[in-house]
Design a protein around this nucleic acid. Sequence first.
DNA 1: CGGAAATTTCAACATCCGATGAATTTTCCG
DNA 2: CGGAAAATTCATCGGATGTTGAAATTTCCG
Lengths: 238, 238
Amino acid sequence: MPKPPDPPTPEPRGSETRAPRTRGPKAARVDTDRILEAAREVFSSEGLQGSSIRAIARAVGCDPALIYYHFDSKEAMFRALLERKLAPLSADLAALADPADERPTPFRLWDVMATYRTHFSCDAGFRSMLRGEILRGAEGTREVMAGHIRRTAGHIWDILRQGQARGELRTDLHPPLATFFFVRTHMEILDLIPVMGARVDLVDRADAVPIAEQAWFHLYWRGVAADPAAPLPPGPWT
Amino acid sequence: MPKPPDPPTPEPRGSETRAPRTRGPKAARVDTDRILEAAREVFSSEGLQGSSIRAIARAVGCDPALIYYHFDSKEAMFRALLERKLAPLSADLAALADPADERPTPFRLWDVMATYRTHFSCDAGFRSMLRGEILRGAEGTREVMAGHIRRTAGHIWDILRQGQARGELRTDLHPPLATFFFVRTHMEILDLIPVMGARVDLVDRADAVPIAEQAWFHLYWRGVAADPAAPLPPGPWT
DNA sequence: CGGAAATTTCAACATCCGATGAATTTTCCG
DNA sequence: CGGAAAATTCATCGGATGTTGAAATTTCCG
């Protein structure tokens, strides 16, 4: 572990307090953000195991060794990427779970879906890699990811519990499981429909994902509503 | 490509028409089935990219080169494994989709779920690998998998269409999408609940998977039934 | 200007990978 | 028994991988 400047300045480009000076051989400096962005793209198309440090370096346009100047290891880089992508999602969901929000539950759940979509829409490969790491990643990585998921899912449980308290949702609903069904199925839509929709004759239209999201939302709401026969109020899902 | 005996006898141990003669250096012959079984286990814990021919050979207890005697390549081995695992599943589902089956639709859907469970219950890693190959596998592999999925899912569409025709299911249901939701969410339960259930405080009980399956079945049925307020008849889901 | 610090590259390491061709051992069958 | 065929191993190829230490280049700051 060479990393000479790490003790004095652990994150060389961590913040913008200091002017973005550009030393080093190249005019366009390579900072951790650029590396993480390239890593996300490479991970997305190749998975974590399939992505080599050299491929990421190629995407950045630098030497592989430079990556070890910014990160201790490939795993540490993955964890940093995880934090960078998942922390904003969790913050947005926390805002949606505000108990002061008195809109009907369908509106709030739709916003949850929209939040996931905007945070993840163009990262199918990245999501898939997250899933793979949950299932068979290194133990340390799995623990870090479990923490993220716990934090994120908790906000949705809150919305469902509030919906139960307000009499909008079935009282016999299990909020953790209902959250799991809601989010994971939505992720499956975002992941698989674009790849398999046309190939498997599921939906052959170009806007297959919005159609599937809408169908899923209607099915789910009927499944969780206290009164499933009552139609959904007009909203963005119609 | 050496493979001297391939033209005369393409599948040395393909069937049991000939007595299981055991030639070769070892008393316990290594046949394609043994290799595929070991490959499934290694793939399950390491994924396709993460699994080496050498690791599979180690699991079989033979030399890596022997695997190339039985299969043209790692990819060909994967395709053979695919066929071996998915063909029986598809056959069982075809039987369930028999239009002569006049039981109420919930019974038939529950059987679909049970069929997936029994075919895949202890293969979480294998399923996950299939998913990964769909998303970012080689083009040839993806095409083969799309064929399997099309064939398999088609039987479930049939069950849903028959349910619609019998007036048990919503007429505005989109059978392909409804199939997608049903099966994929069930797969997510089988995949993720055992790994993440306790870790994320989803369900902390040992029988988390059956509980989740039951909750999912109730939610789904309310979502697709023509009359969601009518309770499910007594059945294996209670 | 000049030294210190930060950034980047180079070359190399040990290791693993998929695959191949040749040699070797075992079984089968006449 | 003996030759042919089948099954298995061995040694090896070229290449990719994660990582590291040292050297080179650039910028900063006094």
